[in-house]
Amino acid sequence: MKKNSMKADKFCYIQSSNESQNLCFNLQEGESLQLTFIVLGDVKVNNHIIINLDGENAACSLRGLWLINGDADVNFDVKMNHHVANCTSDQLFKGIANDRAKSNFFGLINVSTDAQKSDARQQCHNLLLSDDARAYAKPQLEIYADDVICTHGATVGRLNDDELFYMRSRGISLDEAKKIQLKVFAAAPLDFVTKDTASHLEDWINAISL
């Protein structure tokens, strides 16, 4: 494994108003990039993110968390382009939607013919807290190289009754058990943000779920 002494960038976007992000990053050899998007509340957001892995051994991690309510309408359009060999990308997006909020995740991973030994991963998981909330997740892989690792997964679910009953049978109240489930669900995409940012998770969850 080649040691990465090149540029490493880390950005976190917290979006709690109707402001979208249109971003394009081109990563050169050995560069790494970590992007985190946190979308909060009753907002309309259209994020377009294009990542071009242009130099070998470039690595990109994308994280997304949306905690939305009201009539929020959140769209993520992600294009991860593996143009050359030996690059890695991993994407983890999670969303919790309440009321009539809806989210759309569209994630394309494109691995071109020259991009052998690419490692590309993408996950998008959603929890719906109300009957009218909606989540759409559409992962798409276009792979033209033959020696690659590419995985993707998408789920849409609700709070787990068995977990809730298990917690309640130990004396954890229903509200608290729900909060624990939401916190546990939402924590994973916050692995690159500061402790200070992550410490707001509980408040953000309370703001959309109570």
Binding site: D162, E163, F165, Y166, M167, R170, G171, I172, S173, E176, I180, Q181, V184, F185, A187, A188
Partner: peptide, 20 residues
Amino acid sequence: PVDIPGLSNAAFMKAAINEH
């Protein structure tokens, strides 16, 4: 017994004990 990914045994019991 139910699996709860992401919640540690200790945090689980702490929540339970403190509510009791």
